[in-house]
């Protein structure tokens, strides 16, 4: 990333690396400074976070937590016998 002139296109390309904590510190600082002044990128990051949260909410329902709990309970029961 050219840190002197950070473009929104570059920021969007790096958002997952940013959220993963995988950016070199200079890039992270440049990206965060860009976010301070760019409403578009700030809104886009918030949208991405919402989209990730919605995916999580959806898939947690699919692998039923109750089923997982039941298997875990069975496991503990077998271990204690």
């Amino acid at each position: 990333m050219n840190r002197d002139e950070v473009r929104c296109r570059d920021v969007v390309a790096l958002l997952t690396d940013y959220l993963e904590g995988a950016l070199p510190v200079e890039d992270r600082v440049a990206l965060e400074q860009h976010l301070l002044t760019c409403e578009g990128c700030t809104a886009f990051l918030a949208q991405l976070r919402t989209s990730i949260a919605l995916t999580g909410a959806l898939d947690q329902e699919e692998v039923a937590p109750a089923l997982m709990d039941a298997v875990l309970a069975l496991y503990r029961q077998r271990q204690s016998t």
């Binding site: 473009r7 929104c8 296109r9 578009g40 949208q47 919402t50 919605l54």
Partner: peptide
């Protein structure tokens, strides 16, 4: 390389979004 169209914040994910 900057946004060509404005990006809007979405509503909070507790209401219509769910």
């Amino acid at each position: 390389g900057h946004w060509a169209v404005p990006v809007h914040a979405w509503p909070a994910p507790d209401e219509q979004l769910l």
